[in-house]
């Protein structure tokens, strides 16, 4: 459904992504793990066109082109078919929880206002925040903000939702409520690509784990295989280090 080939990205002459190829199928829940600075965020941002890539090809939602040759229409198509959940939520500060969700529906999708509100309420219900619909982001806890962020993404019913470390800005006691929502999404068949440091999520929820380091995909496979029997030395070392800290 989404295929990326040979994706390259550099910042000011530093190669950050050195040729990444990924294939996402419908219903996939993919966890991307790897050390800090390995390019995970950059990967999500280039796929979703928030950053311009320096090379590579994307096949997605009817678009089939080199990243550098994407025209405005194709960029719009890509943006309209992805969802993005940000590390620091990025809720619209001047909108209530409900308006955060209806905004894209009404403005970008041209859905009628009351219909958009119905969709938004359903999305809020899925993340368990119906009673907070009229709160502004500043009146919500981090966990609640992130759940609104997730509701905002699912309300648009995109082909695939990208999560960039959705729980890493949260206080430890709030991580659980967000992970639970994500688990529910995964179980209901939502296609998800999740950058995460939550090894429990990667191991128990996703159906594929990608280990990235230094701008390459070092290894990928089923969680069981990656966690119990990694074939690369780097993967083994990363997992030992990170699991030692839990």
């Amino acid at each position: 459904m989404l295929t990326i080939e040979g994706l390259k990205k550099s910042y000011a002459g530093n190669d950050i992504l050195k040729g990444i190829s990924i294939n996402v199928n419908k219903g996939d829940v993919i966890s991307i793990i790897g050390p800090s600075g390995s390019g995970k965020t950059t990967l999500l941002r280039t796929i979703t066109t928030l950053e311009e890539a320096n090379g590579g090809r994307i096949t997605f939602a009817g678009v089939d082109n080199d990243f550098q040759k994407l025209n405005g229409k194709e960029i719009n198509t890509i943006r309209r078919n992805v969802g993005f959940v940000f590390q620091n939520y990025n809720l619209f500060n001047n909108k209530t929880a409900l308006q955060n969700i209806t905004e894209g529906l009404i403005v970008a999708r041209r859905v009628k206002k009351n219909e958009a509100e119905n969709i938004a309420l359903k999305a809020l219900e899925r993340v368990g925040l119906t009673d907070r619909k009229d709160h502004y982001p500043s009146q919500l806890s981090g966990g609640q903000q992130q759940r609104v962020g997730i509701a905002r993404a699912i309300a648009l019913n995109p082909e695939v939702i990208f999560f960039d470390e959705p729980t890493s800005a949260l206080d430890p006691e709030l991580v659980g409520e967000v992970l639970k929502v994500m688990k529910d999404l995964a179980n209901s068949g939502t296609t998800m690509v999740v950058v995460t440091h939550q090894m429990s999520f990667a191991r128990d929820v996703s159906n594929r784990v990608i280990f990235m380091a230094d701008g390459y995909i070092v290894e990928q496979g089923e969680p069981r295989k990656i966690f119990e029997n990694p074939s690369e030395e780097r993967t083994k070392k990363f997992l030992t280090d990170i699991l030692a800290n839990v």
């Binding site: 979703t48 928030l50 719009n76 992805v82 940000f86 905004e103 403005v107 970008a108 905002r152 648009l156």
Partner: peptide
């Protein structure tokens, strides 16, 4: 925050729309 614009783009809004409805207010 520049994340406000990015969030707008990721719900399918155009930069212009995000500017008028989110950033400028």
């Amino acid at each position: 925050d520049k994340g406000q614009m990015e969030a707008g783009l990721m719900v399918g809004m155009q930069p212009r729309q995000t500017f008028w409805r989110i950033i400028l207010p």
